[in-house]
Write a protein that binds this DNA or RNA. Structure first.
Length: 286
DNA sequence: ATGCCTGAAGGGTTCAGA
């Protein structure tokens, strides 16, 4: 089973790259971020084509910004959009969609950017991550959380740590929030696969030839519970998709899993009771 | 120039992204 996460930076603009790529890489499950498309235009744009290719679609989008989706040809059940009780800015944004695919609870996320560490956007990012962690703590297993985390887990995951001091994506509170998420029992699949390899990046700025010089960041992550992590056969960044004409600024991250033991994926264990809670975004100090 | 590309909305430019 092949599962992929890809921030496409506008589905509308990426169709000429996405469709050939689907035929080449043939993912079983594809998690998209930054579709920048509401659900109806999504269906009009790709619905028939994806159906012909055997994909079921769970799209959760909005006009202009954000937007996530899960495409699956190994089943798509119990779709949940958003994070129950999670914060908005101030209203909920289309940043998470979950579904059970091939016996795994798949959680596709587009974590808020944060902009600058002294901003409401940054506080929103931390609050959003805390809500995600709570959902995962109470969520079913096996599970895989993948998407654009907008956090580089360590200094090894940015091309020049000095250049990022004081900026979002690398601050201690963000990394601590990511560590809390992983403490729910999730392993960083790509880093485990390439423990000593520098320059495993998934995002490169469009400007100044950053991709050509391999000056990027690893911010698109695949985090999996032990029962999924133990099945990983391969995990890699599809740099080819970042090359050529009209690419996204992110590359797909591809993970191949062995079949489950005995070929039986077994039931997905339902979540413990997870009562809805109302959360408020911390207010800026006066 | 510390926004060097790219995309979206909407209008002849501005905001957002990481």
């Amino acid at each position: 089973m092949r599962i992929v996460t890809w921030n496409v930076n506008s589905l509308k603009q990426r169709v000429p790259r996405l469709l050939p790529w689907l035929g080449e890489r043939r993912p079983d499950v594809l998690c998209l971020q930054e579709t920048k498309l509401a659900d109806e235009p999504f269906a009009e744009l790709l619905g028939a084509d994806l159906e012909a290719r055997g994909y079921a679609v769970a799209a959760y989008g909005e006009a202009t910004w954000n937007g996530v989706a899960i495409l699956s040809r190994v089943g798509l059940e119990d779709v949940v959009t958003g994070i129950e009780g999670g914060p908005g800015f101030p209203n909920p944004e289309a940043r998470a969609v979950s579904a059970t695919c091939g016996g795994i609870r798949v959680v596709c996320v587009y974590v808020p950017n944060g902009r600058t560490p002294d901003s409401d956007h940054y506080r929103y990012k931390l609050a959003w991550l805390a809500s995600l962690t709570e959902m995962i703590q109470h969520g079913p297993r096996p599970t895989i959380v993948l998407g654009d985390m907008n956090i580089a887990p360590t200094d090894e995951d940015v091309f020049d740590p000095e250049a990022y001091i004081g900026q979002t994506h690398v601050t201690a509170p963000e990394r601590e929030a990511l560590a809390q998420l992983q403490a729910a029992g999730l392993r960083d699949i790509v880093r485990e696969r390439w423990p000593d390899t520098e320059r495993v990046f998934t995002y490169w700025d469009y400007r100044a030839g950053m991709f050509h010089q391999d000056l990027g960041m690893r911010i698109d992550l695949v985090l999996a519970s032990d029962d999924v992590a133990g099945r990983v056969k391969a995990a890699w960044v599809d740099r080819h998709a970042r090359k050529g004409k009209g690419p996204s600024d992110h590359a797909p991250v591809i993970v191949d899993l062995d079949e489950a033991p005995d070929g039986d994926i077994g039931p997905v264990v339902p979540p413990a009771s997870n009562p809805a809670k109302t959360k408020k975004l911390p207010q800026a100090s006066p």
